[in-house]
Amino acid sequence: MVNLARVSTTLAKHSKQAYHIGGQREYDGFMAHVSGRANVAQQQRAHEQFTEFGLALSKLRGQLYDGAGNMAGRLNGTAAVICRNHPKDIYDHCLSHALNLAIVSCLNVQQVKNMWCVLKEVGLFVSNSPKQQSALEVQIDTLPFVSCNRRKLVDLCRTRWMARRSALVAFADLYVPVVASLEEVSQGRHWSPDSAGAAFTLLFSITQFCFICAFCISKQVPEYVHGLTTPLQKTNKDICNAYQEVKTLTETLHRVREDIDIYHGQ
């Protein structure tokens, strides 16, 4: 297996219309890693690729990377190397990645970590076996009060915390069929002892109050943020409206924290 670092290149053509974020973006391919010191090599490759586009690095006015040392290192990262030659090309931490890190830090609670581990194990238990997936689908078709159209659980994203929202929503929709299918498997009829034992352990875990509480809270957090991050990714977003939406979200979260008993009592 060859481990190669590749950086995607996207050109943004900004409109002259005031107060709008972004503009037309066009994907232009990958900037493959070359041999040598990673930071210098990336800077040289960037210079070559921008030359191919008919652009000059001296006209760049911003760099956005995640917090990896080879890209964002203060002394010898790619951003620092480029800034030494082009001081106006200011580096900033990728805002999407920063939001992801902030949410992870806010939910750095052991009970929440345990919930994620259990949720991951349930997803793997069902998805890795066609027989267990079939058992879940039987419960979805049999139970009269399951109204969603979902047939499968969603895998947890390993890197983007906000992308886990889909997994949380899917698990919430299929919670009752999942419990019913695990109960059936744990009884051991027509199932191997290993499957029955694993199903019993998972069933015990997802029916505990601590798991349910951590799950409900974790599911609610991205519901607030998702309503903001999705519109902000649009290229024609008005910056004044975006600022107002951020302010509204902040005020809403403050009200939830101040009236937490009322919030959970609803």
Rank of each mutant, 00 (worst) to 15 (best):
S8D: 13
S8F: 10
T9R: 14
T9N: 08
K13I: 04
S15D: 09
S15H: 06
Q17M: 08
A18G: 15
Y19G: 02
Y19W: 07
H20T: 05
H20A: 00
I21H: 08
G22E: 14
G23H: 10
Q24F: 15
G29K: 09
M31G: 10
A32F: 08
H33M: 12
H33V: 13
G36N: 05
R37P: 00
R37G: 00
R37C: 01
N39K: 10
A41Y: 05
Q42C: 14
Q44N: 14
A46N: 11
A46Q: 07
Q49C: 04
F50R: 01
T51P: 02
E52H: 02
E52V: 00
F53M: 06
G54R: 03
L55Q: 01
A56G: 02
L57A: 06
S58V: 03
S58F: 01
K59V: 00
K59H: 01
G62Y: 02
G62C: 05
G62F: 03
L64V: 05
Y65D: 11
Y65F: 11
D66L: 10
D66N: 14
G67V: 06
A68H: 14
A72D: 06
A72S: 10
A72M: 11
G73L: 11
T78Y: 12
A79I: 07
A79P: 08
V81Y: 04
I82R: 01
C83Y: 09
H86N: 11
P87I: 03
C94R: 12
L95C: 14
L95S: 14
S96N: 15
S96R: 14
L99N: 13
L101F: 12
